[in-house]
């Protein structure tokens, strides 16, 4: 019984993941004003050819600042945990 449920789950998962490959249409996004603006003006306003980097580092700079801070704090946490485990070493 358990084996049958497992096989059925695998089959459903495979079918669900293979459906987009066959060409399932996901439809159009509802609001495209913002992406149209980025694509139209990103190159002129920032001078970078890679629109993704323009968005990440210029239009959405605060998100990148938060990501860098999260990484910094993550390293602080790892250092704290493993320094305690080691013992006296600073």
């Amino acid at each position: 019984m358990k084996r049958v449920i497992m096989a059925a789950t695998v089959a459903v998962l495979l079918a669900g993941f293979l459906a987009p490959v066959i060409g399932l249409d996901f439809g159009e996004p509802a609001y495209t004003d913002m992406d149209e603006y980025f694509v139209q003006h990103g190159q002129e306003q920032t001078g970078g050819n890679n629109i993704v980097t323009d968005v990440v580092f210029d239009f959405r700079g605060f998100d990148t600042l938060g990501e860098a801070t999260v990484l910094f704090v993550a390293v602080l946490g790892v250092g704290l945990v493993f320094r305690t485990l080691r013992g006296g070493e600073t």
Binding site: F57, D58, A68, L71, V81
Partner: peptide, 28 residues
């Protein structure tokens, strides 16, 4: 503009941070 400078800064930061995690875990 400032995008290459910020790329360099973030690259230096991520290089240090990710290597540091691995080194800390190994030493622990």
């Amino acid at each position: 503009g400032t995008i290459p400078l910020m790329n360099l800064a973030v690259g230096i930061e991520v290089l240090g941070a990710l290597s540091l995690i691995v080194l800390y875990m190994l030493s622990g």
